[in-house]
């Protein structure tokens, strides 16, 4: 008996070590490949340079950072309210049967490959923005123009892509709030809407925030869909209808053709992306921890 257990224990250990080791190896590899460009070109020049033109030796990635962040923030602005509203509806408002059907429909979204989202965006969303959104903007600003490849298109597609994550985790969190909270609130005379907004959602906030963090991770890391619809224009954007290039998209597009120096620069872009994601995660975990702590008090 004991021998079996030991074998299993060792196997589990190997699995755990493999995962950790992969992370460490990947990190070392990215830094090893990219760090020379960062030090030769200068960290400040690299991060705050506004010109990305590798064939000419210009490696300023501010436009790419701005692109990635603007698309991600746009996706969160659209996706968070929709996702939480959807989660509340599924767990509190809808009938059980309806909720079941709707929930599996939303979860199906997670199974669609991202290139399909991108293609949908390219053939539906991009022309729609040019035809319907642009005239509305032009009412306020006559000089506005867009090809349709824009932050807005990217944000909408990414919002749809992160919905399943936000909805299913938030829904679980809201559903697992102890029933006593709800009963007490109703017994004290609060109506259904007050119960949801004042009791259930705040009580489930740590789960909801986790769902947002995961959604954000997916949005900033998404590559294929974004390449197809944001226009990949390495320029600091001035508005929602401008085209942008993202960090991930640029790496994916240019890696195949890159000369050695260019390739190192792309690894350096990878380092920056890595650090941005680490910072976002740290920040999110910190927020989660603080809010979670308060909820338990």
């Amino acid at each position: 008996m004991k021998a079996y257990e030991k074998v299993i224990e060792k196997l589990l250990l190997i699995c755990a070590v493999t995962a950790t080791l992969s992370v460490i190896l990947i990190t070392i590899f990215i830094f090893k490949e990219g760090i020379s460009v960062l030090s030769d070109y200068g960290m400040i020049n690299f991060i705050f340079g506004t010109k990305w033109s590798p064939t000419n030796g210009n490696y300023g990635i501010l436009p790419l950072i701005a692109g990635s962040l603007s698309v991600t923030i746009g996706a969160l602005v659209i996706g968070i309210p929709t996702g939480i509203a959807c989660a509340v509806f599924l767990s509190e408002v809808a009938h059980k049967k309806t909720a079941k059907i709707l929930k599996s429909a939303v979860e199906l979204l997670a199974g669609i490959p991202s290139v399909v989202y991108g293609f949908f965006g390219l053939s539906v969303l991009v022309p729609a923005i040019r035809q319907f959104i642009l005239p509305i903007i032009q009412l306020f600003n006559e000089d506005a123009s867009t090809s349709g490849f824009s932050i807005l298109a990217g944000a909408i597609i990414l919002a749809i892509m992160i919905l399943p994550t936000i909805v299913s985790i938030s829904e679980n969190a809201i559903s697992s709030v102890p029933i006593e909270y709800k009963e007490a609130s109703l017994a004290l005379g609060a109506n259904r809407q007050e119960t949801i907004t004042r009791i259930l959602v705040p009580a489930a906030k740590s789960g909801i925030i986790s769902s947002i963090i995961l959604g954000m991770g997916r949005a900033i890391g998404e590559t294929m869909a974004v390449i197809l619809i944001t226009g990949n224009m390495p320029k600091v954007p001035g508005g929602m209808l401008d085209s942008v290039a993202t960090l991930t998209g640029t790496i994916a597009m240019e890696m195949g053709y890159a000369t050695p120096e260019h390739q190192k620069a792309l690894f350096a872009v990878g380092i920056v992306l890595f650090i941005i994601i680490m910072l976002l995660n740290l920040f999110a975990n910190f927020t989660l921890h603080r809010l979670g702590g308060q909820a338990n008090d």
Partner: peptide
């Protein structure tokens, strides 16, 4: 000064994507 392609150009990663973009963008 090297490749001077305008910074206001849309960039597409393949021949097919350029064709698709040009076909659909006025």
């Amino acid at each position: 000064d090297g490749d001077m392609t305008t910074a206001n150009a849309l960039v597409q990663p393949s021949t097919g994507a350029v064709k698709q973009t040009v076909a659909n963008t006025p």
